[in-house]
Design a protein around this nucleic acid. Structure first.
Length: 552
RNA sequence: CUGCCCGUAGCUCAACUGGAUAGAGCACCAGUUUUCUAAACUGGGGGUUACAGGUUCGAUUCCUGUCGGGCAGGCCA
């Protein structure tokens, strides 16, 4: 439709200017229904160049636009906007198009089957997942669904930092717990983890439990001095817990990458050698430094510590080189904003390898921190302090659908306040139920009608004339554009907002009109409209990973 | 002190990357069910978009400065 309008308008514009580039024509979807279905600011853009007032220019262009049976009217408005109103024929075409496309309405092929890798959650296996990880899971998974809908081949990936200092801390914490050392005892590791889950791991370890994690069975030796077994068992235990959390959150991954594997196969060493060879390193204070300042960082960073081990970002660089070598030209990392400083380091490391990796690769989506409030008090999300709200608790209390909605419905770069009491007590006022209810209402009407839904088709000559109907038609016709935009801008929250508005339009329509009326022609038209709305709601909810129940 | 993100109704958040009269929900007030689910709908009040400048036809959006909040600035991740 947009292409059709652009073509028509360009024919007119060409007669007035010598411009040969149709990309100067931009159509927008006006917010206000009186401003039509499409609007363009072309006259405002051209007025300066042609030294004519925008409104006069608009009049000239308007005269030269060819007629089309898809357009009912074109108006000049405001400072010189051209507002296009679609004809009933165009509207009916959209509805029939949705009825034909069904579950694939909203899909597009802009991805062209290209590969994309999306890394998200990537929590350290040092504790259960908390609300912050939930936000990452919700946003990352929705992004993946968006790219799939836009024709990309998506790989969802989880990276485990299962090596390094934090894992040592974990092991020592569990060991201390096995020895019944209280957390406030001076013998308890200073940087240790304090949560109750540490005691549970210790108990399971001492009773020599076996953990089945990702198809591998790990058995605890039960011996307190066997630090290797404690470490192995603790990681397996927590990975298993995290897997269960993710299942409860309906989030799946295609690939799990382990930091430890990059040490085992020697890739970390290779990256370090390569960085040294390319001349981006130097020794100082007994450590090896990477000149990240060569690539825009504000100071150089240690890559090899005096004790011979590497800092975290070297395995990170290795991992990203691995992604690049697996052929992912497009990679998105979804992370918490507290990791933003790694961006410049990872990119600097990749540049230092001299492999022609683009400077802005990989892309990042950073979500801001969450403040959790319960009983008007902030709940601190701190693993070490132990007082900590897990994702699982949240799902149990609020439900998976609502949790996903709340966490995905906000711009990633806004800090969000998650009020547990509100999410819980407000069950019925929750936006997700509002949207699901709209879907359920349609389902029920169609059920009561009792006809064969697959035969629903809108008569080309039918004219919808009420404002609630026109508003709803406009709403559902925008859906494919919203999907594309949300994908391009890496902004899943736009889907959530759209669905809320679409549901509102449906509810207005429902309260305003009766569908199962005597007049067969009107009945079929209205059923066609709400059935196409049903597909939009269902497809949109699917993008968010939320159920579309037939009844509530 | 330096870098990144943010500041919009009493509260939680939008605003199509510069568009028209800044919109929703919650809360508050007043209405709507003999009719397909009232988990809904209709109407009302509530704003100097933190503040001060600048850029232009046009700024919540871009630039500069100030104030305020969050996160980083580990040989932790």
């Amino acid at each position: 439709m947009k292409a059709h309008l652009t073509e028509l308008l360009f024919l007119a514009v060409k007669q007035i200017t010598d411009c040969n580039d149709s990309s100067i024509i931009v159509f927008e979807r006006p917010k206000i229904i009186n401003h039509g279905d499409f609007s363009t600011n072309i006259c405002l853009v051209l007025s300066k160049k042609l030294k004519k007032s925008p409104r006069a220019l608009a009049a000239m262009i308007l005269e030269k636009i060819p007629t089309s049976d898809l357009i009912s009217n074109i108006e000049i408005a405001g400072a010189g906007f051209l507002n296009f109103f679609l004809s009933s024929k165009a509207n009916n075409k959209i509805i029939n198009d949705i009825l034909n496309s069904k579950d694939s309405y909203g899909k597009n092929k802009t991805g062209n089957n290209k590969k994309i890798q999306i890394e998200f959650v990537s929590a350290n296996p040092t504790g259960p997942l908390h609300v912050g990880h939930g936000r990452g899971a919700a946003i990352g998974d929705c992004l993946a669904r968006l790219f799939e809908t836009s024709g990309w081949v998506v790989t969802r990936e989880f990276y485990y930092n299962d090596a390094g200092e934090q894992i040592n801390n974990l092991m020592h914490s569990v060991k201390a717990s096995c020895q019944k050392i209280p957390t406030d005892d001076p013998r308890f590791p200073t940087d240790g983890y304090h949560g109750e889950y540490i005691n549970e791991i210790a108990k399971a370890f001492l009773s020599m439990k076996t953990i089945d994690c990702q198809g591998v069975k790990i058995k605890a030796s039960g011996k307190i001095e066997d630090t290797k077994s404690i470490q192995e068992f603790s990681i397996a235990y927590l990975r298993k817990e995290q897997d269960l959390d993710l299942i409860a959150f309906k989030t799946k991954f295609d690939v799990y990458s382990l930091e430890s594997s990059f040490y085992k196969d020697g890739k970390v060493e290779k990256v370090v050698d390569s960085l040294i060879k390319e001349g981006h390193t130097y020794e100082k204070d007994g450590a090896l430094w990477l000149k990240t300042t060569n690539f825009g960082d504000d100071k150089d960073r240690v890559m090899k510590k005096t004790d011979g081990t590497y800092t975290y970002f070297i395995p990170d660089v290795t991992y990203h080189l691995d992604k690049w070598e697996r052929g992912f030209k497009k990679v998105i990392n979804e992370q918490g904003a507290d990791h933003h400083s790694t961006i410049s380091r990872v990119r600097a490391g990749l540049q230092g390898l001299n492999k022609n990796i683009p400077k802005d690769w990989p892309e990042y989506v950073l979500h801001q921190m969450i403040t959790v409030i319960k009983g008007n008090k902030e709940v601190k999300i701190s693993k070490r302090a132990g007082s900590y709200l897990t994702l699982r608790e949240l799902i149990d209390e609020v439900g998976c659908d609502a949790t996903r909605y709340f966490l995905a419905a906000r711009r990633p770069d806004s800090q969000l306040v998650f009020d547990i009491d509100l999410a819980k007590s407000q069950n019925n006022d929750n936006p997700v139920y509002y949207i699901q209810y709209a879907h359920a209402r349609i389902s029920k009407v169609l059920e009561q009608w009792g006809g064969d839904i697959s035969t629903l088709k809108l008569d080309e000559s039918f004219i919808f004339d009420s404002n609630v109907e026109l508003k709803l038609i406009k709403s559902i016709s925008i859906y494919p554009e919203i999907v594309l935009q949300a994908t391009n801008e890496l902004a899943p929250h736009q889907i959530a907002n759209f669905l809320k508005e679409c549901a509102a339009d449906l509810h207005s329509y429902y309260n305003n009109s009766k569908f199962l009326v005597e007049d067969e022609k009107i009945k079929m038209a209205r059923l066609s409209l709400i059935n196409s709305t049903k597909y939009v709601l269902k497809n949109g909810l699917q993008l968010l990973g939320i159920e579309a129940p037939p009844q509530m």
